[in-house]
């Protein structure tokens, strides 16, 4: 082998220096990318639950089917509330970019309230079903329904806890660089939950009612 030539293949190592600003930028980009990957794994988790629901949705075992228990106006209300919360989340991000802290907190609070009312509606639906004897133990269909919708609801609840912590942090420390980063991550998470809900709305409720 010719060792004297310095073709691209044999170019030696050199030294590189990354400035602190570059390092910070790279750290932010890494965090966002990592969060995207996490969201994709969460999406796969939902995909598995959707597949399970698809397999079991006809296995009502003498219990009610989707058409018997789903109410279109009710689900539409839930959907509109969640979509609106995505809109207020968008407003939060715009206010944050404009560096207007009071507006950020207000829009975040609106998002939280909408999320809370969504979860309350979902819980009231669950309680109503269980009270009528249609709990998740009744049939494979109901097991799959409660688990799929409940997993989404659990995500929303985790989101609400995160939102609260984030709101406090912004209230105390203001729109610092770490808080801006966390706000963007939270916004990704919130829109992601909205996206999953669109699939839930279509594949569970619409398909069930039609």
């Amino acid at each position: 082998m010719d060792t004297n030539t310095t073709t691209r293949e044999h170019e030696p190592l050199t030294i590189h220096h990354t400035s602190i600003a570059e390092q910070d930028l790279k750290k932010d980009q890494t965090t966002f990318f990592g969060f995207w990957i996490y969201l994709m794994t969460d999406l796969l988790l939902f995909a598995s639950l959707f597949a399970v629901y698809g397999v079991l949705r006809a296995n009502t075992f003498g219990g009610p089917s989707g058409a018997d228990i789903f109410s279109a106006p009710f689900v539409l209300t839930e959907t509109l509330i969640l979509l609106t919360s995505s809109f207020t989340m968008g407003l939060t991000m715009m206010a944050a970019r404009a560096n207007r802290k009071p507006l950020v907190l207000a829009a975040l609070a609106a998002t939280g309230l909408l999320g809370l009312s969504f979860v309350s509606l979902e819980l009231s639906e669950f309680i109503k079903l269980i009270a009528a004897g249609h709990g998740p133990q009744q049939s494979a269909f109901l097991s799959a329904y409660f688990t799929l919708v409940g997993t989404h609801g659990l995500h929303v609840m985790i989101g609400l806890a995160w939102l609260l912590a984030l709101g406090i942090s912004i209230g105390v420390r203001g729109l610092t660089r770490p808080n801006m980063r966390k706000l963007l991550l939270f916004s990704m998470f919130w829109h992601f939950l909205d996206l999953v809900w669109i699939f839930l709305f279509t594949l569970v409720y619409l398909w069930g009612i039609l």
Binding site: V52, V55, L56, N59, T60, F61, P136, Q137, Q138, S139, A140, F141, S143, A144, F146, T147
Partner: peptide, 22 residues
Amino acid sequence: LTLLALDRTFGMHFFTAGGGGN
């Protein structure tokens, strides 16, 4: 694993022989 745990702990029917499980 979660679904199996739900079956075992909360009496659901994902994989049971009865109740429409698969």
